[in-house]
Amino acid sequence: MTTALTLDGVRKLYGAKVAVDGVSLTLEAGKITCLLGPSGCGKSTLLRLIAGLEPLDGGSVATDKILSGPTFHAPPEQRDIGFVFQDYALFPHMSVEDNVAFGLKRLSPAERQKRALLQLQRVHLADRAKAFSQALSGGEQQRIALARALAREPALVLLDEPFSGLDAHLKAGVRDATLEALRQAGTAALIVTHDAEEALIMADHLALMDKGQILQTGTPQDCYRHPVSLAASRLLGPANPIAVVVAGGKADTGFGSLDAPGFADGPAMAIVRPEALTLTADGTPALVLANRFAGADSWITLRIGGLELEARMATRLSPVVGSQVLVCLDPSACSVTRA
């Protein structure tokens, strides 16, 4: 694998507040990495540090050369890193075509126009080349902003909450168009988002961030199935924490046993995803406390022994409130972490 970007112990302070706290991360060339975290966790700040829009207070940012270090700061225009802003930041005094060509001033005018049109074709907006940004829909503006960032053929492009300004029914379409354009360009991308589903769908690699620190990195499947902590698991979706005791590489939840390879005997925590609880003919008895309809699936609150657990089941199979059911645990949607 070739590396597009290496972050090593990156720190950023705002006064006494630590916004980014020792982040180390490697981005692979040509791959899409999603940086997922709650609001205010420092992920947008990290993006600005990578782009060189702000100096960092510690650590380093490097591509094949050092970009930011303790004594060195390459200005953003010399980094060859594209950036798609949350509010798109299209220049209102320029046409779509001129916006896309903005970063191409070293090319001849003819070449510049050719490249801008090619980029617009890639996002299927070549027919809007002469329009001004005020006349475009939100989805179109987002695609123009992407085309503008990709026009310089950067080795890495950063996208800050690229779909947060869009209506829900537009999101899926724009997201697919964005993925297609990124794959076509073959550039590495780092996408900041707080939407778990968006991250899981788009990412080749995930980086989970909270309180200025990276909690976990890996493929979406890896991070979802084997979270390193309850906090990491909850970034990707609801989870039921259950205190367990590990003995001989096994953790017993009381209604099913889970593998805990590599864990020493003693207390640990089982993380049970809602879809891990399924109805069966010969499982553990459970009382149905609540049933909330959510379309194809329903959210069921179950009491098993002394525990209240959230389950997610197909609506057509979901039990009525107050009934007694038998449930078992699907181990593939469970994992064990440190207590």
Binding site: A51, F83, F102, A145
Partner: peptide
């Protein structure tokens, strides 16, 4: 907007160039 500023910088324009062109 602040991000127009930043967009210009990440598109390879210097500070004074951003002033002139944006």
């Amino acid at each position: 907007t602040p991000s127009m500023d930043r967009a210009s910088r990440t598109l390879g324009e210097t500070e004074t160039g951003t002033l002139r062109r944006v």
